[in-house]
Design a protein around this nucleic acid. Structure first.
Length: 497
RNA sequence: GGUCCUGUGGCCGAGUGGCUAGGCAGAGCUCUGCAAAAGCUCCUACAGCAGUUCGAAUCUGCUCGGGACCUCCA
């Protein structure tokens, strides 16, 4: 299998990826909290990991890809006596918490499908794994790293830090972390400022609560990922992913919990995706600058000049490396739209080419250039999933393809093997690895017949130099969103704009 | 305040100590009845200052700007 390098947040370097079990990859990605719609920033992370998942499969790995649905717990604000988000939302909307969960889970799945993200192989929910979480909290208590106060279980960060470096993931010392926290209020139950809850006591009016050894309550936010990743991937597994914003708190606590319970570092490679920004500022719910996927697809967001298709957005994201911030703007989106169209059209031309005879390339230099560029796909993708570079190589091949299609370059310049290789790799990357889809042409055969008829009439008009008629057909079809192009070989092609 | 990231041509964005990524926009040309598309050519940038080096956008230091995390957030 090809050598793959991944950037590991833990070591802050690119490392050669070696799976625990040869040929297999265990990957856990932090999924959404389903109490509201996912915004585009969330989608970026899921699209990034979808491409990573697809690439592992392309390389021939068997992947268990676990991505959770957080449908319980999750405190509001930073106070431990805060509300469960699901309960709070439920009271506002007069719904059962599980109705909220259902609504936004379905919405999330719909969005993932529109972006053509493959579903994870396991998508566990927090509410479905309460016992596992209780068991893990108990394990941490038994090992002496957690304590119970009034029905709530806290993780003892300072005690843990005496044996293991708590801030290892973000390279920070406990003292530094402590400086950043505010003073404990008088009524706080926690022993240490950085201590976090594994299990939270529920008040009687709390809608979602479960029995536990410490009374009725609900799980803390971080414990679900630790419990579920262990259940499905083991005490140690290959890859854990998520947005960079999760590293400092959520993932740091996950490491501490797993170490405290199993005495093992849970994750070998931590992968973090960077943030999506709007005018240079991170897109987030709290900042109120979140774009919903639906607003994008319909163009209804006030900052958008037009609608952008899911594939347009997906391609836009692929043009940037996953560890760089990506700024969201109309100009960038429109540039991506045109680029994607150009690339897909070139691919469609490429597909139609074929060479019958086996023989040497007519133009050795060009043939070698093509092979070099095609081979760069794998090289760059294996260098920490550099989708931007792969696309650059693809775009360098576009003029070659178009020139062959326009017959300004002879097809026999390339050897049959090179052409076949290029066709295969384009297909692999565009659709299998990048997960792009062709813009849906009309599949209505009757309509296709009608357009063909108009094209025939136009051709006749042109041959009679009746340009009034031929232009009328072309212009009016264009207004309807159908573009006719006169090809160099005298043929006519059409496409839906 | 602490920790860290970052500053690339009109815009978006890769990037390695030496070999002008790529996309979009713009200009010219070719093709074309005209368009569109396509092809060719041009637009050769790396915040500033200093240093290391034969050579730096790439390493080091300082200055300035932007951002993230330290609080729920992908």
């Amino acid at each position: 299998m090809r050598e793959l390098k991944v950037y590991n947040s833990l070591s802050r370097t690119k490392e050669i990826f070696t799976p625990l079990i040869s040929g297999h990859v265990g990957m856990y990605v932090c999924g959404p909290t389903v109490y509201s719609d996912v915004h585009l920033g969330n989608c970026r992370t899921f699209i990034s990991f979808d491409v990573i998942y697809r690439y592992f499969r392309y390389l021939g790995y068997k992947v268990r890809y676990v991505r959770n649905i957080t449908d319980a717990g999750h405190l509001e604000g930073d106070r431990d006596e805060g509300d469960d988000k699901f309960s709070k939302k439920a009271r506002v909307e007069q719904l059962e918490p599980m109705e909220i969960v259902q609504k936004y889970t379905l919405g999330f799945h719909k969005v993932m499908e529109l972006f053509n993200n493959l579903p994870p192989t396991i998508e566990p929910t927090a509410t479905g794994h309460i016992t596992e979480q209780i068991r893990m909290a108990q394990c941490i208590i038994d090992n002496g790293y957690a304590y119970v106060v009034n029905g709530t279980v806290y993780f003892d960060v300072e005690k843990y830090n005496k044996e293991k470096p708590y801030g290892i993931l973000t390279n920070r010392k406990l003292e530094e972390l402590l400086e950043g926290t505010r003073d404990l209020g008088g009524q706080d139950e926690k022993k240490g400022r950085l201590d976090f809850a594994l299990w939270i006591k529920a008040s009687s009016e709390h809608l979602m609560q479960w029995p536990s050894p410490w009374g009725m309550g609900f799980p803390g936010w971080h414990i679900e990922c630790s419990a579920m990743s262990e259940k499905y991937l083991g005490k140690q597994f290959d890859i854990h992913g998520g947005g960079m914003d999760l590293a400092a708190t959520h993932h740091t606590n996950e490491i501490a919990q797993s170490e405290a319970c199993y005495h093992t570092a849970p994750v070998r490679y931590w992968l973090h995706t960077n943030m999506l920004t709007v005018n240079g500022v991170r897109m987030s719910k709290s900042a109120g600058n979140g774009f919903l996927p639906g607003e994008l697809f319909t163009g209804s967001h006030p900052l958008l000049e037009k609608a952008y298709s899911p594939m347009n957005v997906r391609f836009f994201m692929l043009q940037t490396h996953y560890r760089s911030t990506l700024d969201f703007s109309n100009e960038a989106l429109q540039a991506a739209e045109k680029g994607l169209k150009r690339l897909l059209e070139a691919y469609n031309h490429l597909e139609k080419l074929s060479i019958d005879t086996k023989g040497p390339a007519g133009n050795k230099e060009l043939d070698e250039k093509v092979r070099k560029l095609v081979n760069e796909f794998d090289e760059n993708m294996s260098d920490d999933f550099n989708t931007a570079k792969v696309l650059a190589s693809m775009f360098e091949l576009v003029p070659v393809i178009n020139s062959i299609k326009d017959k300004t370059v002879d097809l026999s310049s390339l050897s049959k093997d090179t052409l076949t290789l290029m066709q295969e790799k384009f297909k692999n990357y565009l659709f299998d690895v990048f997960g792009l889809k062709q813009v849906t042409e009309t599949d209505n055969s009757k309509l296709q017949g009608v357009i063909q008829l108009l094209i025939d009439i136009r051709r006749e008009a042109k041959s009679k130099k009746d340009f009034v008629t031929s232009d009328k057909i072309r212009n009016q079809l264009l207004q309807l969103g159908i573009a006719i192009k006169d090809e160099k070989d005298g043929g006519m092609s059409w496409s839906v704009e």
